[in-house]
């Protein structure tokens, strides 16, 4: 699947000369250097790199969970580098995360977990939240699991419930941290296909970190990070 930049929408995230370090003085450890990055609507960016290369730090910065030490971060056109308070909260509401595991609230059913993804957004409508959540679960093949507890679901099913929760909030940016690492090949493939489809149809940007080479082909672009520096790697489509 070739990258086709000209059909992609406007930039969702722009990182300009991002530099990040932990600690100060003798304890200072630099983890990211000169990151320049633009991710557009409909794009699925895969971030690869060895452990400790700075992948997670980059994801948390892009997700506005961490403030970069230097540089500028723009989200949906707004400079969020030094943004605080309610303005930042409102923008954060347009980002959704998908983690490797521990995605679901164990005390809520699959359906309630999905509804939890929309309750804080302006899209929330008590009359429609439940039918919408049921529709999404059905679409992801979990129609009969709506009332199941997370511990009654397989790892792949749990990830699909988490995707439904991401989808219901119609986010502009999805950050997925190794979402397939705990899944088998088939379940993993299903999850990334759904993310790719979501990026294209819902016109959102997806940033996905992974070590799993088998899923590189879903990416619009692949970014490799090593020792805090990133570079784009061509993707070989099978």
């Amino acid at each position: 699947m070739p990258t086709d930049h000209h059909v992609l929408g406007p930039a969702v995230v722009e990182a300009i000369d991002i530099h990040h370090h932990y600690g100060d003085g003798a304890q200072r450890v630099d983890v990211l250097f000169d990151i320049n990055l633009q991710i557009r609507e409909g794009e699925l960016l895969i971030v690869t790199g060895p452990s400790g290369s700075g992948k997670t730090t980059l994801l948390t910065i892009l997700g506005t969970m961490r403030r970069p030490s230097q540089g500028v971060l723009r989200l949906l056109g707004a400079d969020v580098t030094n943004m605080q308070g309610a303005g930042l909260d409102a923008l954060r509401n347009r980002i959704r995360f998908l983690f490797q595991k521990r995605n679901l609230l164990s005390s809520l059913t699959a359906l309630q977990n999905v509804i939890a993804g929309v309750s804080t957004t302006p899209l929330s409508d008590p009359a429609w939240n439940e039918p919408r959540a049921r529709h999404l679960l059905g679409m992801l093949g979990l129609g009969d699991k709506a009332d199941a507890w997370p511990d009654e679901l397989s790892g792949g099913q749990q990830q699909r419930v988490a995707i439904a929760r991401v989808m219901i909030g119609l986010p502009d940016l999805i950050i997925a941290d190794e979402p397939t690492s705990a899944l088998d090949r088939v379940a993993g493939r299903l999850v990334v296909d759904q993310l790719k489809d979501l990026a294209m149809r819902a016109k959102c940007a997806v940033v996905l970190s992974t070590h799993d080479e088998r899923i590189f082909d879903v990416a619009s672009r692949r970014l490799h990070i090593e020792d805090g520096r990133c570079f784009e790697v061509p993707i070989h489509y099978h």
Partner: peptide
Amino acid sequence: MALTLPEFPLPALRRWRPG
């Protein structure tokens, strides 16, 4: 797997204002 996004009426996005 083809996805069809739910066709439910979505409320207009409200502008954020300090409550």
